Simulated scan of single mutants.
Amino acid sequence: MKEKIKIGISVGDINGIGLEVILKTLADHTIYDYCTPIVYGTTKIASFYRKALSLGEFSFNVISKAEQANGKRPNMINCWEEDVKIEPGVANATGGKYALLSLERAVSDLLDGQTDALVTAPINKHNIQSDNFNFPGHTEYIQHKAGAADSLMFLVSDDLRIGVVTGHVPVTEIAQHITKEAIVSKLALMKESLKKDFWVQKPKIAVLGLNPHAGDSGLIGSEEESIIVPAIQEANDKGVFAFGPYAADGFFANASHLKFDAVLAMYHDQGLIPFKYIAFHDGVNFTAGLPVVRTSPDHGTGYDIAGKNMASANSFRTALFEAVNIVKRRREMAELTANPLKITKLSKDRD
């Protein structure tokens, strides 16, 4: 019997809703039929939120390293010992400091192969900044630690998958980051992820324009004709089935996303606003293009409801199961690639 998949979990900002959605998720004992969760934080803070949620019988199996994890219980690696003042709903340096301690240990174990995937609870991108974290967010930090040349912020749900060319970039700087090379790279990452991580064998990808009405033939901007169209053509020459550019407003208004396996948006809000509207309660943020698997819920720290037992765990729970599924698909794909005869048999069985 194969060992269950180990899922590392970073706690995010301790004053946000991270630990609340983590505890609500792990309180469901069916989780342990599918994976072994390992939370990187401290039992002292978890106890505070356990009491706030009235989870009287819930407890962690405390371990010092991932290999000691109990497959039938929630596991905790204490990343610090000192007492910490918890202030739910307050954005302060304390929240950022301990979010980083959790993330550093969780990413280290992930890259060392001690865990099979990582699910990250939300951080505050401002208060986590330090000498050890000078990145716009999780995606860029984990890409750097993994030594990857590029990555793709890929928002996924049952009905919609959206990636972005530019992630956490100020609006005034977006256009300068929209290059043919960047678009071609993101399309290649998206294609490979769709095949390897989601088993879409011949993915069909829609590409959105940058300007209103996709530039309206150059009347409202030239980027479509000078950059995006050539990028789509080059991507197709390299075996990516990409189409567009499409005007973002009409594309989603007409539910055109249902005709494609994924959509590449030019910038953060162009992709995330429709995604969160369509799939807010079960959407997952997946970092594609890395040698490791990382997912997260598609919401933020939720300071306004932190500590009030109001946060929904749906997105976090979905992120955990998506991480499990992606690990399984990658393993099976690797096994099939190593044994071509199995691919032939699988194809015959499906005919």
Rank of each mutant, 00 (worst) to 15 (best):
E322L: 03
I14F: 10
R50D: 01
D150M: 01
D13N: 13
L219N: 07
Q270T: 11
G215T: 02
V11W: 09
A66F: 03
L26S: 07
L101N: 05
V293G: 05
D261L: 05
C35A: 14
G147C: 08
T42C: 10
I63D: 00
K97A: 15
D158Q: 15
I174T: 15
G218K: 01
V119Q: 05
P136W: 02
K191I: 01
G16T: 12
A93D: 14
G147Q: 09
A91C: 14
V21Y: 06
R294S: 03
K180A: 11
I142S: 03
V284C: 05
L194M: 10
K195I: 15
L194I: 08
F135D: 06
S157E: 05
L152D: 04
V324M: 01
T166H: 03
D282Y: 04
A117E: 07
F48Q: 07
T42W: 03
T172Q: 08
F275N: 01
T25H: 01
K195T: 15
G167N: 14
V327W: 08
V184H: 02
F316C: 03
D33S: 12
D109W: 01
V156Q: 02
A149L: 13
N285G: 09
C79D: 04
G307Y: 10
F321G: 04
A242S: 12
G209Q: 11
S157T: 00
K259G: 02
E224I: 08
S130C: 12
N285K: 11
G71A: 13
I14E: 03
G96I: 07
T94L: 13
A52P: 04
A253L: 13
H168F: 00
R317C: 06
C35M: 14
L155F: 11
P37M: 12
Y303E: 09
A255R: 15
Q176I: 00
V171Y: 07
D249Q: 07
N61Q: 14
V229K: 15
F316L: 02
F321P: 08
D237K: 10
V156D: 10
K145C: 14
V84R: 09
S102P: 10
T43C: 13
I128A: 07
I123Q: 05
D158I: 00
